[in-house]
Design a protein around this nucleic acid. Structure first.
Lengths: 223, 223
DNA sequence: GTCTATACTTGGATAGAC
DNA sequence: GTCTATCCAAGTATAGAC
């Protein structure tokens, strides 16, 4: 947005490793941390800059506005987590395996505060005109990912017929966000994790109702 | 908190119908409306007072702080909705009937913005020390209500054995909050309501797996 | 690119007139 | 109980020195 043209290192658009990139990265990390610990309402330019150990004016130089920096923070979290998600979901070929992968991912997100960043940005978007649309497209990408993972893991099970992957994904993302809200509020992650245990058993139940056609262990038996 | 002792009408603690009570009510309503439309971060004393059509200083006179007024707003929504919930859930004696009642309630909450107030308060609590605990006890009451409703509607069905009401209630409240976040963000209530259709079918499925012992139509047949 | 300094706005909160 | 006036802290954003 305000990328200057007078960089000493001529490394083009990326400027990776340059001083500018380093500051941007510091600010993005500080913004993430501030969203986690102070929430959207506490994520002011001054608060973020103090955490980054640099001057408040740099936020406007590099990002133009606080809202833009917060969006960059949301993007950073999204990119980092999507890589991890793809890796975790890769090996899941049945509903139960997908639940296991989701449980592991979600436990990490709760523990590290990644989910908090999403929730604070969604809830906070209401106070800044235009921010809602920007956040919406980013969350839409998460739901798309969930839909794809569910679609491929549910293939061949009765779930695919009973519950369209798109609707299911919407519910999963909502549950993810809601569990984060409650966990954060009550300082208790265990209640959320117990639900994944239940989901696992339900998934095994669903698998038994119909043979998972794509699973390598599909032999037509019920157990 | 700052209830004066020099009221002209000597009506004790309530002061119902007095000028003071009227102003307090106006402020609480305005706070609710502001939370819905501007979010927690936009719910400043000035913004709320402007909506209430009165002076900003009155907030501090009547409630001591903005945070206290917002808590009073949360209480007002909780009380009003709890009455409605109790009425809606009263007639539900089976899982499917409870889902129907919940769907009706939730549609109202989404439409009127009651759910938004909850979500904004939970997410916003992170920025104000001490607020989280206050909000937490209020949300805890909602989960308690859900648990009780689920417990009595699930009695006699296989659900009761497979899924403790407490855990189930936690998931339901989380889903409620998450669906509100997504609905509000994407301006689309339909996606959330479709999930209740699916839940209804699942509830009917569960009822068929085992006879609902407490239901008046329980005759031991499968259909 | 980063800092200091500063302009200007908004927000929380209180004092005192009515 | 309500209003006006005001103080002060904190916020966004920009200008200009280095």
């Amino acid at each position: 947005m305000a990328r200057s043209g007078t960089s000493r290192r001529l490394v083009g658009d990326g400027d990776v490793g340059g001083r500018s990139a380093r500051t941007r990265s510091l600010l993005v990390d500080a913004a993430i941390e501030t969203l986690k610990e102070e929430g959207f309402a506490g994520a002011s330019a001054r608060a973020i800059a103090a955490r980054a150990g640099c001057n408040q004016a740099l936020i406007f130089y590099h990002f133009g506005s606080v809202a833009n920096l917060l969006l960059a923070a949301l993007d950073a979290v999204s990119v980092a987590r999507r890589e991890r998600y793809a890796e975790a979901v890769e090996g899941a070929t049945s509903p139960a395996e997908l639940v296991d992968a989701a449980a592991a991912i979600f436990a990490e997100d709760l523990e590290a505060g990644h989910a908090t960043v999403l929730v604070e940005m969604i809830a906070g978007a209401a106070s800044t005109p235009g921010l809602g649309a920007e956040v919406g497209t980013r969350i839409g990408a998460w739901r798309g990912f969930a839909e794809q993972a569910i679609d491929s893991a549910a293939a061949g099970t009765p779930l695919a017929a009973l519950f369209p992957a798109g609707e299911f994904a919407h519910g999963v993302v909502a549950l993810y966000l809601g569990l984060e809200l409650l966990s954060h509020l009550e300082g208790d992650r265990a209640a959320a994790l117990r639900l994944f245990e239940r989901a696992k058993r339900l998934a095994l139940l669903v698998e038994r109702l119909g043979p998972p056609a794509t699973s390598p262990t599909a032999l037509g038996e019920t157990r």
